[in-house]
Design a protein around this nucleic acid. Structure first.
Lengths: 243, 243
DNA sequence: CCAAAAGTGTTAACAGTACACCCATGC
DNA sequence: GCATGGGTGTACTGTTAACACTTTTGG
């Protein structure tokens, strides 16, 4: 949305239809755990409208009126993710969660946006481009987003994404698997759950759930242990079985 | 999708853009319990492509390039529902569940469709237009849909809607509330769960869940009892509290 | 030894399952 | 009476929740 498509247009007003059509974009809610905190990737807009405001990354879905008809929605989301973060889409949990099409949500014209949730494993954060230009992209704690006054209806899109993720975290552990590094400790997985759900879990009770996941093969023992700097007993490492 | 918009175009090729744009539609998965069976509303297509095949009801999202920019996605879904069933949207659970945009899904051109789930209470089924013209609209048991070879990617859309509904039924009882009449018996609610989940539940154990919902106020006692024709003890009536 | 972090054990309450049984009604 | 459907009770199991406790490490 904040940028033109890559293909150079062959002239103004080249594409005509019998009825008005909306522009269709994907908006990305890219989440990661930084420290013990859930953060979302925001881009500072360099163009009007909402110039200088923070916004979710996103862009137009490539469409064609002949031949292959363009790219799929999933492909558009994967492409945008790669442009904004330099992450490989196969390393990231990427899933559509909802479409947003309220008239007036973009002052330039009718725009319908498909919202995508992207969960980045903590150990791949270094590959993110967000650090390259701190003025243009930033990992913002989700708790601080309210103060930012996001552009367009992006606050609403983020809220919907968070709700979707929290609901699914309780159903599928796979969501949490997308946010932890390949190898992780019991405490690290617990902190992911705490960061996402926004509440704390009893260590002993969480470990019991963890041990059950080991019993049914969801989680397998990894190699050796990981010691934190400072005192404290080193923790065993684990990984998800399907990785 | 199967019909043109109501407004008469003011000439061919009147609406021009710098980049190609997709058409955007809503496709409706309208579900109801008929007897003890989950059924979906299907429309027989009178126009090519897929002429004569069964399809989900749906249509274009009204868009405008100036002024109010047209209608919201929810409004488009409510309008389509009214056109197809004569039901009031406020009586029907109506919720977006996913967008479908695979290139090639419509041979006429690039079409992105927003899937909507509509749950019709059993006592309002008489208001449906589906019976008016049996050749054009039909409540088809979801178990029989596979044999029908639906038009476009509508089989995929239906499968996604069913999965979404089954997941949510376990989380929110509200889904079931949208399928039962205003007043219902314990057995009726249980049969809704059985029809949606595709499995049977133990009467006694289901009643315990039911009684818990009475305890926390989700369900309240209704007036009197309902007797079925034939033998058997009449059953107490209940209703959901927020109705 | 002490603080910090990992990890275990104990108990009670709660929810799910399978199953047997009693109640009200029409025929 | 008896078949039919509504409704209750019991015993067993597994899960969750709260909390106390032990073990391993660095300083």
């Amino acid at each position: 949305m904040s940028r033109a498509v890559a293909v150079v247009p062959r002239g103004p007003g080249r594409f005509t239809y019998d009825y008005p059509r909306p522009a269709v974009t994907v908006d990305m809610v890219v989440l990661a755990i930084v420290g013990f905190e859930l953060r979302v990737l925001l881009i500072r807009r360099g163009q009007p409208p909402h110039r200088g405001r923070w916004a979710l990354p996103g862009g137009f879905v490539h469409t064609s009126d002949d031949g292959d008809q363009g790219e799929s929605l999933d492909a558009a989301a994967a492409r945008e993710l790669q442009e904004e973060t330099a992450l490989r889409p196969e390393d990231v949990f990427l899933q559509q969660f909802r479409a947003f099409g309220r008239p007036g949500r973009d002052p330039r014209g009718r725009v319908i946006s498909i919202g995508y949730l992207a969960l980045v494993p903590a150990d791949l954060l270094t590959r993110t481009r967000a650090g390259d230009d701190a003025a243009a992209a930033q990992w913002c704690p989700v708790a601080d987003v309210e103060r930012r006054k996001l552009a367009f209806d992006h606050a609403e899109i983020l809220a919907c994404a968070l709700q979707t993720m929290r609901e699914r975290l309780l159903l599928e552990v796979r969501i949490a698997a997308s946010l932890v590094p390949l190898e992780f400790t019991k405490a690290e997985l617990r902190r992911v759950f705490e960061a996402v759900a926004g509440q704390s879990y009893d260590k002993s009770n969480f470990n019991k759930r963890f041990n059950r996941m080991i019993d049914d093969g969801t989680i397998v023992s990894g190699p050796g242990v990981r010691a934190l700097p400072g005192p404290g007993r080193p923790a065993s490492l684990y990984r998800f079985a399907d990785y």
